[in-house]
Amino acid sequence: MSILLPTASGETRIYVPRSESVTYAADLPLRSRVVFSAAHVVADPLRTAADAPAAVDWDATLAFRRHLWAHGLGVAEAMDTAQRGMGLDWTGAAELIRRSAAEARSVAGRIACGVGTDQLTGPAATLDEVVAAYEEQLAVVEETGAQSVLMASRALAAVAKGPEDYLEVYGRLLRQAAEPVILHWLGPMFDPALAGYWGSDDLDSATATFLDVIAAHPDKVDGVKISLLDAGREVELRRRLPKGVRCYTGDDFNYPELIEGDEQGFSHALLGAFDPLAPLASAAVSALDTGDTAGFRRILDPTVELSRHLFQAPTRFYKTGVVLLAWLAGHQSHFTMVGGLQSARSLPHLARAYELADRIGLFPDPGLAEARMRGLLAVHGVDA
């Protein structure tokens, strides 16, 4: 049976969905790579945006995290995939961190949580205010027993006058961190407010400052997450990290080659793309655990076209496609997002995401995915 999908040109074309599901098996636990999925939140469509904390369906949100842990992935919590700064405020994020960390303890799941400064609702007047905001969030995460991810700060980007300010802020935070943290470098394609992070728009200069922060506190840095969508730059930086400091790729365009690595090393993973791709990511890394690099690439390479589509410019709206796929896959009962972000992508974009996901066998129940896609098209006036 076929379905009519709208295209970017304003026309429709026929697509024939797959009729049978695909099973991806993995031998758990995963051993050769540390793999985190940055996880989305499930909105409660019966609550309003004015509700505090954010209108989150906690049961469905935690159920999705159990799905990720069941596939052997760690959960990167309260990151940008969870709409931090795009619908989820600090009050909601703190609640999410506490609930998810408790759930992780109950199932022995790996979890790392985002530490930022988003409780600062206006531009920070001083570096001390930025540090204090980071410290408040760091305390919340450490109290739960979760690992901390020091996220890039819009407030710091706004107030910092140069590299020395980044060295001061991160130095103060790393000295007091109870356990080694993950440092997160999020590029402006994900958040335009982070342009010039580490004190320069020149990426070579910014990289030098980033490495200076790590070199001054290597015992307090578990690893770094790089989200610049530049594979060559990530490899170069990876080779310059101190011994024992991991590189977690955040490159949703080039992750298979970066995770596979080369003769000089490899990247672990902390990826928003692995939210929808968890079963395939798990199976692929399981193959890598046995030395089957060809099998790893055979599973993961076909997912790249979908990931690049989800993360196409404006990249910060990738969450819309991620939540669409969770709905189509049956992980939640609706396609509603915190802050109404389901409207951030066009119908042709969403239709293409459905097609690419169906082609790689992402949906456990292809019939359900097709029926839900037809319903979405009908709401938009498309007779599929």
Rank of each mutant, 00 (worst) to 15 (best):
P6W: 09
T7K: 00
T12V: 13
Y15H: 09
S21E: 10
R33W: 10
R33S: 00
V34K: 14
S37F: 02
A38E: 10
A39C: 02
A39F: 07
H40L: 05
R47D: 04
T48M: 12
D51P: 06
P53S: 02
T61N: 10
A63F: 07
L73V: 05
V75C: 07
M79N: 00
G92E: 09
A101V: 03
R110K: 08
V115F: 05
V115A: 01
G116V: 00
T117N: 03
T117I: 06
G122K: 12
D128M: 06
E129D: 13
Y134I: 09
E143N: 00
Q147N: 13
S148I: 09
L150E: 12
R154F: 14
K161N: 06
P163I: 07
E168N: 14
A177Y: 01
A177L: 01
E179A: 14
I182P: 04
D191G: 03
P192G: 06
A193H: 10
S200N: 01
L203D: 11
D204V: 08
S205I: 13
D212N: 12
A216C: 11
P218V: 01
L228K: 04
L237W: 11
L237E: 01
T249D: 09
G250W: 02
G250D: 02
D252A: 06
D252W: 06
N254A: 14
E263D: 14
F266C: 14
S267R: 10
L271Y: 15
D289L: 01
P302V: 15
R316I: 01
G321Q: 05
Q332D: 03
V338Q: 07
Q342A: 05
L347Y: 04
A351T: 03
A353I: 05
L356M: 08
L356T: 04
D358A: 02
F363N: 08
L368H: 06
A371G: 01
M373H: 03
V379E: 15
H380A: 09
D383H: 07
